[in-house]
Nucleic acid binder design. Sequence first.
DNA 1: CGGCGGTATGAAAACGTTTACTTCCCGTAT
DNA 2: ATACGGGAAGTAAACGTTTTCATACCGCCG
Lengths: 343, 343
Amino acid sequence: MSAQKTGRSVTIKDVANKAGTSIATVSYVFSNNERYIRPDLRERVLKAAAEIGYVKNAAASSIRGKRRGLLAVVVAQFGNTFFTRMCVEIVSLARQEGYVVTLCNSDENVEQERLILERLVAQRIDGCILSSALSLEDNTALLRQHRIPYVVLERSFPNSTLQHDFVGHDNFQSAFIATRRLLDAGHRRIAFAGWDSPIPNVRDRVDGYRAALREYGLAADQENVLTGELSEAAGRWMAEKLSGTLGAAVTAVVLGHHDIAKGALLYFQDHGIRWPEDISVVMIGTPEWAGVLRPRLTCIQRPEHEMAVATAALLLERIKTPEAPPVQRIFSSSILEGHSIRP
Amino acid sequence: MSAQKTGRSVTIKDVANKAGTSIATVSYVFSNNERYIRPDLRERVLKAAAEIGYVKNAAASSIRGKRRGLLAVVVAQFGNTFFTRMCVEIVSLARQEGYVVTLCNSDENVEQERLILERLVAQRIDGCILSSALSLEDNTALLRQHRIPYVVLERSFPNSTLQHDFVGHDNFQSAFIATRRLLDAGHRRIAFAGWDSPIPNVRDRVDGYRAALREYGLAADQENVLTGELSEAAGRWMAEKLSGTLGAAVTAVVLGHHDIAKGALLYFQDHGIRWPEDISVVMIGTPEWAGVLRPRLTCIQRPEHEMAVATAALLLERIKTPEAPPVQRIFSSSILEGHSIRP
DNA sequence: CGGCGGTATGAAAACGTTTACTTCCCGTAT
DNA sequence: ATACGGGAAGTAAACGTTTTCATACCGCCG
């Protein structure tokens, strides 16, 4: 409880002095080694440590020992609800294993991302979860070079033949069930508004949409795919495009990404286009703001909790067995029913 | 570029060998000391380092040197948009000064918070930004004991006479301008729906509301204050309460916190109560979801960017001059006009 | 030609731990 | 009584840096 007088911070040596023992004994007490220490001695050491406020210096201990007690999660869009949620869960899981987690935001900037990873390497983190910025570059070489176990989350790399440990969700399936939901409700003129992504996995969404149409015997000329950059503005533009053909050519739309969806839905609201009366809507994703829209949207939701658990578990496992072959875990999404679909 | 063969990681010693120099020289090259090194030698060292992929071990360097290169931001609600935004900005500012920042989420749990701070102390962080969990407990003693500079962000401690470095916003003023805005629009029967917070600063909001009423010569019996716990449910309940007296006793409401506001607004939507037709609304705060509500809400927004800059700057300054007297920076909010007020 | 001052580098101690190795002690078997 | 074995603790080397101090070299002046 009492504070130290000196400017220096309290070390193992101070504890040893106070307890009248050797520094080795103190070290053994604090690193849960199998070495046996007489209960009374152990007690004395703990008491002395508590009295002078000793806290083990993790940096020093990591230099001789191997474990650093530090993990990192690097994401490209910190503000994105999905990633925020993943971070929160991963951090809390890792904490249970005694790790401190540093969260980093590359802000979709590969240069920034490289810088971050370099700093993390300098910190000798024990492991890393990476949800890379959008680009052709693959910064994971840095991690491999320094033998830092890592798991790629959600975003994979376009031109890589390399197999990484990976946790993500099935984009094809997401779009497929979204589209099928509309088909089941009787719609036949269904548009898809999505992101013209450089990420291969994300492109699968268009394929999912197409596959669902096929399954219902709709031909290629029944497709109505709008894609563009990832922005609200793009969504508005797509909604505008759609609104011209409402009723006639289009009765429903699959909103393939929440950023685009936001723009589109705002356009609808601002132009008096109501869902589900004027257009039926399914959105892929469950952003925070979806909760306040009325009528409630029918959304496709990723199993966030399961994904977070899987990611954390996979990283911890890979730290234990670094040489094991890479694992890919792809999760399926489910429908969260709302009232945005008219039969 | 070439990877190391051995299992060990590349050290300063390897670089020295490769460059045919001493480890001291290599160290001097990489710590930007004032020591002069002949340009050709420096070149040789850098080249050797690059070739074998040397990255300085920050943990090792922190043990002899003093700087750890690690800061922490501890917040209580990671998902809260305000804190998310603050974190993003602070991290990016600190990075410019060469720091890695670890973001921690105490999830409004003091025990968790203490645990986190203990871990951070063990990591010997150079500084900490703390937005404490709600409780009577003040965990900053831990930080002071270990001489870790810190800045308290937004949330202060109820029963503390201690002066911390602090950055926050003026809750009184926020509520004051919110209420005055409604008064200016001609409303006289204005309710306040807020959080019955244990945080003294937050309680100021009710006072701000009251002060505005006074300024317009309204008596105490014109007050209509609803407070409760911080939740959507509480907001719904307050809205229900209000809806009974709409028009007659109440024509406008100040929503004092975004969580409560969310519940209230959902209640309004679900019961066909429209703003601004049936009730005029001002919300304190600018949560993400406010962007999709139509008509747009008039909100009170904190100067988030300025606050983030101030917080980061204050921490960095305090790291440089640890003994300087504490600084308090209180920011004022401004009105973001929407269409939720009827004259 | 010896000494001196200044400059560029190297040797080694120090940092706070972990851990391999050693020592000490005591009980038991020979 | 001596040797042996094993438990409990201490000694000291190691980890990868930083930093203090020492040294080697060089040119110059006396």
